[in-house]
Amino acid sequence: MANWHFNRFLQPRPLLNRMAMGSLALSMLMATTNLATAATTGSGMRILVVGEDSDSSTVSRQSDVFKRVTSELQRVMADHGHRMVDEEMVAVNCGWKIKTRRPKTELFEAAKLANSCDKPNTHSRFMAMFRMFADKKSAGYATMLRLRLVGEVYDLTTNELVTSITYPRDRAALEFSAPADCDKNCVTNHIGLHSADMATSVGETLGRILDGRLVGASYTEADNEHSANQQAQTKDNCCPDCCDTATTYQVTLRSFSTVRAMALIGMMSEEFPGYISHEIISKQPGIWKMEYVTQARVAKLDEWLNTMLMDMELDPDRDVIISILDGSLVLEKLSRDGQPLPRRVGPSFR
């Protein structure tokens, strides 16, 4: 009887007919052999922006200048479609305390620990690190200020330095003047204005380099247009009452067979309106974990999950427990395969 029902599950049904079997097989192969590969659709990789201030000549993270540089780097790279991870939000979610004057080794350790945190919205693939050097000297008639901004990007999966850039590139530092009697607040304001412009240039350069890395050597303007079209389609396929701001969930599938788990992932990524991206975090016997980014509202997501289970001949009240709480979505299969449920007719998700 069990084999008979398993064979019935493999047979085409109204919902699964819309999923190409070749695509399903390819998805299964990619998920099981390359768990670290992100299935991004119209969005960039997650990037954690941090500042190193261990050197006494660098601007401390307690300074307003530090915060301006951080915000501007995040803004510019986000404009390139990358998903920015805020260090302070990570600290809150993981229960950490951020210190000042941290060396590069501590920043690497913090980024690695963030990726091991249970909450997927703390995970990142790249770390963008900056150092802002600033000093001043009196010239009698004015106060001379000097600035230099260094930006580096590291791949947290391969532990490679992706790129680095120093601004300005054509001289040792950017020099400008302030009033002779410029006090601490005055210096901070002048440095802040120039540092924001420097961060814009550095962020733009790093964003372009990451754009090229994500799509490889075939990166062209046509790729940009294709990505923009995908983003537009994501918005168009979701009704106003169905979708909202993008939310990242950690999805856990418990006690599902590989075939059923792959079918679930396939439907959630190919048929659920508002879908943006997903990435397999880990796969162990009976347990799949993935990051799932969607614009779907919680109520609609719950409705579609129940519909999906019924289309797979599972009773949501008997066979599976659905739990959605604080960015966590758990589907736990309780029973073995039983009698099939009546199939619905018509569109599944709307």
Results as ranks from 00 to 15, higher is better:
Ala2Gly: 14
Asn3Leu: 11
Arg8Phe: 14
Arg8Gln: 12
Gln11Ala: 12
Gln11Pro: 11
Gln11Ile: 06
Pro12Trp: 02
Arg13Ser: 14
Asn17Pro: 10
Ser23Val: 01
Leu24Gln: 14
Met30Gly: 12
Ala36Leu: 13
Thr41Lys: 06
Thr41Ser: 10
Gly42Asp: 00
Val49Trp: 14
Ser60Gln: 06
Arg61Cys: 05
Gln62Pro: 09
Gln62Thr: 02
Gln62His: 06
Gln62Glu: 05
Phe66Ala: 02
Phe66Pro: 13
Val69Gln: 08
Val76Glu: 15
Met77Asn: 13
Ala78Met: 04
His80Phe: 12
Gly81Gln: 06
His82Ser: 12
His82Asn: 09
Met84Gln: 05
Val85Asp: 11
Asp86Ser: 04
Glu87Arg: 06
Met89Val: 02
Ala91Met: 15
Val92Met: 14
Cys94Asn: 07
Trp96Glu: 05
Lys99Trp: 03
Arg101Trp: 09
Arg102Phe: 13
Glu106Ser: 04
Glu106Asp: 04
Cys117Asn: 08
Cys117Lys: 05
Cys117Gln: 10
Asn121Met: 09
His123Glu: 07
Ser124His: 07
Phe126Thr: 00
Ala128Ile: 02
Ala128Asn: 09
Phe130Tyr: 13
Arg131Pro: 08
Met132Glu: 04
Ala134Tyr: 05
Ser138Leu: 04
Gly140Asp: 11
Leu147Trp: 09
Val150Ala: 01
Tyr154Lys: 01
Thr158Asp: 05
Asn159Leu: 04
Asn159Gln: 06
Leu161Trp: 08
Pro168Ala: 00
Arg169Ser: 15
Arg171Gln: 12
Ala173Thr: 08
Glu175Gly: 00
Glu175Gln: 01
Pro179Asp: 08
Asn185Arg: 06
Cys186Asp: 13
Val187Asn: 03
Asn189Thr: 03
Ile191Tyr: 05
Gly192Glu: 07
Ser195Lys: 01
Ala196Met: 05
Ala196Leu: 02
Met198Val: 01
Thr205Ala: 05
Leu206Phe: 10
Ile209Pro: 14
Val215Ala: 14
Gly216Asp: 15
Tyr219Ser: 09
Ala228Gly: 03
Ala228Met: 06
Thr234Ser: 07
Lys235Met: 08
Cys238Ile: 00
Pro240Phe: 00
Asp241Trp: 03
Cys243Phe: 07
Thr248Phe: 05
Val251Met: 12
Arg254Asn: 11
Ser255Trp: 15
Ser257Phe: 09
Thr258Cys: 13
Val259Asn: 08
Met262Cys: 11
Leu264Trp: 10
Gly266Ile: 01
Met267Ile: 01
Met268Ala: 08
Glu271Gln: 09
Glu271Pro: 10
Pro273Ala: 00
Ile276Trp: 15
Glu279Ala: 03
Ile281Tyr: 07
Ser282His: 03
Ser282Met: 14
Gln284Arg: 10
Gly286Asn: 09
Ile287Asn: 15
Met290Ile: 01
Tyr292Asp: 13
Val293Met: 11
Arg297Cys: 09
Val298Asp: 11
Lys300Cys: 04
Glu303Thr: 01
Trp304Glu: 02
Leu305Ala: 03
Thr307Asn: 07
Met308Val: 00
Met312Asn: 02
Glu313Leu: 07
Pro316Asp: 06
Asp317Pro: 12
Asp317Gly: 11
Asp319Thr: 04
Asp319Arg: 13
Ile321His: 11
Ile321Lys: 13
Ile322Phe: 09
Ile324Asn: 11
Leu325Tyr: 15
Asp326Pro: 13
Glu332Val: 02
Glu332His: 12
Leu334Glu: 15
Ser335Glu: 10
Gly338Gln: 10
Gln339Leu: 07
Gln339Val: 00
Gln339Trp: 15
Leu341Thr: 02
Arg350Glu: 12
Arg350Gln: 08
